[in-house]
Design a protein around this nucleic acid. Structure first.
Lengths: 227, 227
DNA sequence: CAAAGAACTGAACACTCGTTCAAACCGGAA
DNA sequence: TTCCGGTTTGAACGAGTGTTCAGTTCTTTG
């Protein structure tokens, strides 16, 4: 044997893998999942189409990994926001506001990860990701119910519905689209969050307070995309 | 001129056109929009693939018409239910419950009409249909707000969010799937409707009453599919 | 019944991707 | 420098599907 992967080569391989994933992510961000085709992604990653297949066995695997990656970031963000909140209700508000902010700032990507139809092979991965995200929300709803801040309810259905409400109103085809203006953006996020909190039984006055608390400290996107 | 379409022929042509649309609808009902392909639809309509093109200029046109048709039925159902209600709040509850019932009973079709990605040429039609449906809901929200039953709010965003919440919790991939049991089905519809009403600011106690009122008189699917 | 034109058929075409693979290329070892 | 095998390339392949069209069948009229 006359050949061994040197440190430098391994580094280059890892970088290339990341580049492909990043290219896929960028593509999904701007054009949705349907735009994530091997050829464009390869071009974006400065690689030939065939090369993609040395890093991912199939397109389905590439997309599955992309979904896992984005979903992992999302869950971490929700946890971070919720765990920093002072009480169960604030935690729920923070969780919901976090999801809302991420959705408006990552529009197409959020839609692609959560809802846009994909190959059956990816459906399972996507389902897992969805469950993880709604699970985070459900956890906070359950805590708030336990604390007596919310009425007893089907928390699983509630968490799912919340995600749907945010999704539809913020990144769906009927979502307001002139969100360049940060003020407008914040208004929309707050309105959606308020609506979502009321849905699970937070009373109106209380909800307004929670929303303001939760939405204010949130920083815009920025990070989320390193590697 | 030696040939004229006789009455009988025109009838047959119209019937064939309906048959193709119905086949498309059935296909979408069982397999989603993605399953609506020319060849299978043609087979289902007892027609050759080429014949479809004598009735619809392209697949996009066929699907656009299908969406318009379903959407028209849906809007009519919402109007019927809402207009029969005694007051603004009941009307809103009836509208929401109607959408909920139709969604659970027409799962894949609802999803396909509302959300499943389609050709860009169809996107415009779909957008119109969505606007019509959310418009119906928004109208009832506005009425309830005017009547002082709901707090002032962004009614457009609210209507969109409601549709999203129902959609996600009732026909989305995380929706409960063992809805063969009518009792279970009614529970889910009621829970989702309750959630949606609370979201726009109906107070919990009042919402429960409205939901019961609205959900009970609703008859299952049955019709909806004639021609 | 014959002629003419409309409607229908279904195989062939065109186009879009995901995937493959033989040839070219490159980095490491001697 | 030379050899070797891992890596990359990109053209070619193949599967899936919307669309077309020459040939066939059906309907009407005289």
């Amino acid at each position: 044997m006359v050949y061994r992967r040197t440190q430098q080569v391994m580094k280059r391989l890892a970088a290339r893998r990341s580049a492909i994933l990043a290219a896929a992510r960028d593509t999904a961000s701007s054009g949705g999942m349907a735009a994530v085709q091997i050829a464009p992604v390869a071009v974006r990653a400065n690689v030939a189409a065939g090369t993609v297949y040395r890093y991912f066995p199939s397109k389905a695997d590439l997309i599955s990994e992309l979904i896992r990656e984005v979903s992992r970031d999302e869950v971490a963000a929700i946890r971070g926001a919720a765990d920093a909140a002072p009480g169960p209700s604030s935690a729920l508000a923070a969780a919901v506001a976090t999801v809302a902010v991420h959705m408006v700032s990552h529009g197409k990507l959020a839609w692609g990860i959560l809802a846009e139809p994909v190959d059956v092979d990816v459906a399972a991965t996507r389902l897992t990701s969805r469950r993880e995200i709604t699970g985070e929300i459900e956890t906070r709803i359950v805590a708030a119910v336990r604390a007596g801040h919310l009425p007893a309810q089907d928390t699983s259905l509630a968490a799912t519905a919340l995600l749907g409400a945010l999704h539809e109103s913020l990144v769906g085809p009927l979502a307001p689209d002139h969100l360049d203006d940060p003020a407008k953006l914040r208004d929309v996020v707050q309105a959606a969050t308020l609506l979502a909190l009321r849905a699970v039984g937070v009373t109106d006055a209380r909800a307004r307070g929670l929303v303001v608390q939760a939405a204010l400290p949130v920083r815009m996107p920025a990070g989320q995309h390193a590697g």
